[in-house]
């Protein structure tokens, strides 16, 4: 085959391959919605993280603003320490509330940030003081049953 035709085909092949990687990055992956390079780190301690995993999204008002990077257990306070990175474009006040929420009834767990009213914003490496642990279904049910039983006793 002529050298030029060969080069053309191989060129097209490489372009198509790179385009496929790009599609995987932008359309399939999250590169378009979240850029890791411009971010800062926050920490939060929870009494119970439920089924939260590393790489779970961090959302505020339903918008993904960051991602959980690390989960560890603090042996001094017996609490779970969650490290997350948040996009530089989004700033939150010092008294922001961090909750562990669930998408739908059985969906993935994520961290929800409820902004407070403080003048000062959170800086990189700061600890989020106000947290709410994950709702664990078993304890929810047992609490409900206990309340019902207590109700019944009271009415007797």
């Amino acid at each position: 085959m002529e050298r030029k035709t060969l080069d053309l085909w191989v060129g097209l092949f490489v372009v198509a391959g790179l385009a496929a990687v790009l599609v995987l990055a932008m359309k399939v992956g999250n590169l378009s919605t979240f850029n890791m390079s411009e971010s800062y780190e926050l920490k939060a301690d929870f009494g119970n993280i439920g089924g939260l995993k590393a790489r779970a999204p961090v959302k505020s008002a339903g918008v993904v603003v960051g991602r959980v990077t690390n989960i560890s257990f603090d042996n001094a306070s017996y609490r779970a320490r969650v490290t997350m990175v948040v996009d530089k474009r989004y700033q939150f006040p010092k008294d922001t509330f961090a909750k562990i929420l669930t998408a739908g009834l059985l969906g993935e767990q994520y961290i929800g940030l409820d902004p407070g009213g403080d003048e000062v914003n959170l800086k990189s490496g700061d600890n989020i003081a106000k947290t709410e642990p994950a709702m664990v279904l078993e304890s929810l049910i047992s609490k409900f049953m206990f309340d019902k039983a207590a109700d019944g006793d009271a009415k007797k």
Partner: peptide
């Protein structure tokens, strides 16, 4: 598409592939 994008991470999934 949105669930896909939320779950597939560029570095962790695409680059590792």
């Amino acid at each position: 598409w949105s669930q896909m994008q939320a779950a597939v991470d560029f570095r962790q999934d695409v680059m590792n592939g």
